[in-house]
């Protein structure tokens, strides 16, 4: 329950902080940090334009996309408190329910019959496919390390004690940050602020969405960021009491958002053709974590 509330709060300012960081880095004044939320609110109040090519898929897809991310958030725990849903193997459910949302967002883009949106859909399908193995190997390594297979038990029994485990924690953070970037179509995979449709991934998929639907899609993106931020926080807080855990949570989210903003300010997007290789390299980082876990457990004897 706590995690849900915290994620909701964090999602309110997360994207705002990214935008603010970017504007400060480029020497602009920039909008306030609640501007993205205000945008969504404004979109909720607007009418919509639908393409004449589209069908019911296009209408239901944003709803399913939003619901799937909310469902995924429900299984995310916070330190020593469970998520609303918690069972053995819930991270499998987490990954698959997110995949359901992705499935719908892809077919909704294809529903418009547009050449641009097909391009984005194809890329999104491919990238998320490549990102999944990394997540499963990561969770598998932690399951092996802790002897449990649910998010809550893994995170609450995960103690970062020795040097190796700190290395593992850092690598896991890297993998999760990168998965978050891929899932949210951010730099260095995708540039959400590019001016050219040909070079977009996620933004081009939602070209035809408007009004309430677009609002839902945008807010889903904010929630997703906060959700991954929470997963990263969970790597570190373990059994800490709430008095420490909650401030750590907000600091981590803040740092995560600022680093996303900095990456976007100072890095160029990768070439599209290099993206799959980059994403696939994440799996090898995950495998490194797996080997590290084997080291810790002394399986190499």
């Amino acid at each position: 329950m706590l995690s849900l509330v915290l994620i909701l709060i964090a999602s309110l300012f997360f994207t705002g902080i990214i935008i603010r960081t970017k504007s400060i880095a480029s020497g602009r004044k920039g909008p306030g940090i609640f501007q993205p939320v205000k945008d969504v609110w404004r979109l909720f109040k607007k009418g919509s334009v639908y393409s004449e090519t589209t069908s019911f898929v296009f209408q239901i897809a944003p709803v399913v996309y939003f619901s799937s991310v909310v469902m995924a958030i429900l299984v995310v725990p916070f330190g020593s408190t469970k998520g609303i849903i918690s069972f053995d193997g819930d991270f499998i459910f987490f990954a698959y329910v997110l995949a359901l949302g992705k499935f719908f967002s892809i077919i909704s883009a294809m529903d418009t019959g547009s050449s641009f949106e097909g391009m984005g859909a194809s890329r999104e399908a491919l990238y998320s496919m490549f990102a999944e193995p990394a997540f499963f190997i990561l969770m598998g390594s932690f399951a092996l390390l802790t002897g449990h297979t649910s998010f809550f038990e893994i995170f609450s029994t995960l103690h970062l004690g020795s040097y190796i485990t700190y290395a593992l924690g850092i690598m896991a953070t890297f993998v999760l940050v990168m998965i978050a970037m891929i899932e949210n179509s951010r730099m260095p995979i995708d540039d959400p602020k590019t001016h050219l449709e040909l070079t977009m991934v996620h933004e081009v998929m939602i070209l035809d969405n408007s009004g309430f639907d677009l609002g839902l899609i945008l807010s889903t993106g904010y929630l997703k960021f906060a959700m991954y931020g929470t997963l990263i926080t969970n790597l570190y807080i373990g059994e800490l009491s709430m008095a420490y855990a909650i401030p750590i949570f907000f600091i981590t989210q803040f740092a995560f958002a600022v680093s996303v903003g900095l990456i976007e300010s100072f890095m160029a997007r990768y070439r599209m053709s290099h993206n799959p290789q980059f994403i696939f390299a994440l799996s090898s980082v995950s495998l490194l974590i797996f080997l590290g876990v084997l080291l810790v457990l002394g399986k190499f004897v």
């Binding site: 709803v63 619901s67 035809d208 009004g211």
Partner: peptide
């Protein structure tokens, strides 16, 4: 149920809004 609920809210909110049908945006 949750999907249906969000769908219901969407219906409720967009009921009084102006809906236009246009060709697909071709940039």
């Amino acid at each position: 149920l949750f999907i249906l609920a969000v769908w219901g809210i969407r219906k409720l909110v967009t009921r009084s809004k102006i809906i236009t049908i246009e060709p697909t945006w071709g940039c």
